[in-house]
Amino acid sequence: MQKEAREAFNRLFTEKKYQEFVKSIEASFPGSLDFRVAETPVFVPADLKAKLLEASEDIIATILSDGFKEKNDRAVPPGQRVPGENAHSSFLAIDYAICKDESGELVPQLIELQGFPSIFGYQAFLSESFRKHFDVPENFDYCFGADSYETYAKKLKRLILGNEDPENVILLEIFPDKQKTRIDFEVTEQMLGIKPVCYTKLIREGRQLFYYQNGRKIQVKRIYNRLIFDDLLNYPELQTNYHFTDDVDVAWVGHPNWFFRISKFIMPYLSGKYVPETRFVSDYQNDFPSDLENYVLKPLFSFAGSGVNLHVTRPILKALPDPQNYILQKKVKYEPIIQAPDGLVKCEIRLMYGWEDKAAKPELLISLSRLSRGEMIGVRFNKDFTWVGGSATFFE
């Protein structure tokens, strides 16, 4: 997006460089890279960076406002409320489409947000890899409030480990070795010293949790949660010693309840020039907009784009059995703005925040970007394309 940086990168880009770059990632973590890495990072100009930060500050102000937690109490589904909820989310991830306004200026438009951790480890590793293999201008940085990979890792360690020994902190997932994001688990283990542990391997004894490592029974005192508990519905026959709603003596980093509280659920409560019009379907009381072709329908309780309907009709809306659990959001037009050798590519940027328990507000740590030529951002909409996929973001 930043003209000079883009032109310089494209001028020096070769397919051989890209293949060597990808091979270096695969060599560092064999068998773990399970999604496409784009050929280029995103270079964000200073004026767009300022708008992204402004948009997020407005959203954070709403999250910090009086009565916010009471408004979203319904967001936590019955039967999925986990004990031990902390005062605020440990993480915040905010997704923006990059668009153009009426005057042709680049602007962010909110797509989604979540009180859930993203790929904090992998994004730092990926950004460093881009710097090693390509010429990234020195006046562009990928992290915030940290001047090096090591400083960034220290911030992440303080957030996730707190004062605990790494062996007493686990990264929790369901079958972590089968997850598409497993490369992030490996980077995180290398960076912080914490093991990915499968939900099925946790052992509860009274109010304490344990896991086994090399024949040793180790107490779990802190959980870096990467498990979306809705995913457990995909395993109806799952037998476990511990159930996530059990009241146990652990501290959660990324408490499961905040995944629901800060989510699509709060979008109808947000407003501003960077937030598209969004309402609960139930609020329309069947008096739907006449231009439904300009709206997208999203279920509140879904992840990674599942259940999103880009082609909304009145019969679809009227047939919803639980309209209070869906939002109707004004479509935004992703502007193809990143120059690839064979055309322009759309872009989405996620700003990723950490929020220590005693901190007054979240702190922006890093970001990710996703490049697309398809109807939506995501792997299944970009098959057989180049210059698409997950990437790093460098800010002027």
Rank of each mutant, 00 (worst) to 15 (best):
V345H: 01
N309F: 03
V308R: 03
E363G: 06
E293D: 15
G378Y: 10
V332Q: 07
I349A: 01
L292D: 00
K318P: 01
F301P: 02
D342C: 07
G307N: 01
G343T: 07
D322R: 14
L310A: 11
L351Y: 03
V345L: 04
I377M: 00
Y295V: 01
V308E: 02
I338C: 03
I377E: 00
F301V: 01
Y295L: 00
L365D: 04
Y295M: 04
E335K: 04
L371N: 00
K361S: 13
M376Y: 08
I316M: 14
G343M: 14
F303D: 07
H311N: 14
I338D: 02
A319W: 04
G343N: 10
M352A: 01
W355M: 00
L365F: 05
Y326R: 04
I338P: 01
L368W: 04
M376V: 07
Q324S: 15
A359Y: 08
I377H: 03
E356I: 06
K383C: 03
G374R: 08
L297H: 02
C347K: 03
F303A: 14
L300Q: 05
I337F: 01
E356Q: 15
K346R: 14
P362Y: 00
Q324L: 10
I316Q: 14
L310V: 06
P299H: 03
P336E: 06
I327D: 06
L317M: 09
M376R: 15
E375T: 07
Q339I: 06
K346M: 07
A359I: 07
D322E: 15
M352E: 15
V332T: 09
I366T: 15
N382F: 07
V312G: 07
L344F: 13
G374M: 07
A359D: 15
I316H: 07
E356D: 13
N309R: 02
V296N: 01
N325Y: 11
G305V: 01
L368S: 08
V345R: 00
M376K: 12
A319Y: 06
K333E: 15
W355R: 03
D357S: 15
L364A: 13
K318H: 12
I366N: 13
L328V: 10
H311L: 10
P323L: 14
P315Q: 11
V308A: 05
P323M: 11
L320C: 13
K361D: 04
S306W: 00
L297D: 00
G343E: 09
P341Q: 07
N325I: 05
K333G: 03
M352K: 02
K333H: 12
K358D: 15
E363N: 10
A304I: 03
L344N: 10
L320T: 10
G343S: 11
Y334N: 04
L310C: 08
S306P: 00
V332E: 09
L351F: 01
L328Y: 11
A304E: 10
P323K: 11
R380Q: 14
S367N: 00
Q329K: 10
G343A: 08
F301M: 06
I327F: 12
F303H: 08
V296E: 01
P321Q: 13
I337G: 05
Y334W: 08
A319N: 10
A319E: 12
S302C: 06
N325C: 13
L364E: 11
